[in-house]
Amino acid sequence: MLEVRDLSVEIAAGREKLRVVEGVSFSVGRGEAVGLVGESGSGKSMSAFAILNLFPSPHARIAGGDIWLEGRNLRGLSAREWRGVRGAQIGMVFQDPSSYLDPLIPVGRQVAETLRAHGRNEGAEARVLELLDLMELPSPAEVARKYPHELSGGMRQRILIAAALALRPALLIADEPTTALDVTVQAGILDLLTRLRVELDLGILLITHDLGVVAETCQQVHVMYAGTIVEQNEVGALFRQPRHPYSQGLLGSMLGPDSRAGNLFSIPGSVPGARDMPAGCRFHPRCPIFQPGLCDTGEPALVDRTGGGSDRCRRSGEFDNAWRRTA
């Protein structure tokens, strides 16, 4: 349904042009949840904004690639046509629900506004109540009359999901939708997304830095590092047997039941900026199995591996865990 090919995003900084997303490809099918994970600054949000051609900064733009949605290439569209696609064919929700809601307008009217903006005045009220009910909000009619500040963070996020789905889009892009919520509220939202995926046959692109959230919600996973996808696989395989040292390191940094301060693992160093991108493999300055001559000449391509999935490591699969060198 959604097919992103070789997407690049550029940010103009003075005279410089910074490539913050480079050659990213992925697809999302109907009824499928695809996770985009990686540390902050790896280009997850920029990739999502590119699909919508809606950047928070006027200096950012799509620099290359194609975005196919249900057989149509969005790259050729005019700004007006693209606006039609947003909302109608692609819904979106972001991390901080408060900043996307108007504090002075009852939330029901804000959901109705999405319908009206696309000329669906007929039966808007009824549709809003139906949507709020779909979001498992108790007494929809009552909730619709409330102002954002009268609702909890979790309820506000449900209102935004309702607005995003008002026009029955086939795809929902959710950028860190639960990061600002506490754990029990997060679990409710993730359950809701799963139910909507199955019941509405909705495709979901879920962007998060939380691997636990991905494990419980997504079927496919793409791991991003420094603007590129470094590993892609089906969720079970990726968690069972990550191949790229970066994926192995991310999984190793998660706090498990046996993690105690004193033995916590972390990947040394930090994500490079677009200005000081290392030559060759972008991860090589932090990699425990970096091999001079092999890893620092030319960027490794994303290679399909036998048995499924793909990754960008020249020593892919040599070690079960490169950080402990166990073969």
């Binding site: 636990g212 419980e216 079970g236």
Partner: peptide, 9 residues
């Protein structure tokens, strides 16, 4: 409610 890195869930 705490997410666990186990897709089997």
């Amino acid at each position: 409610a705490t997410p666990v890195p186990d897709p089997a869930r």
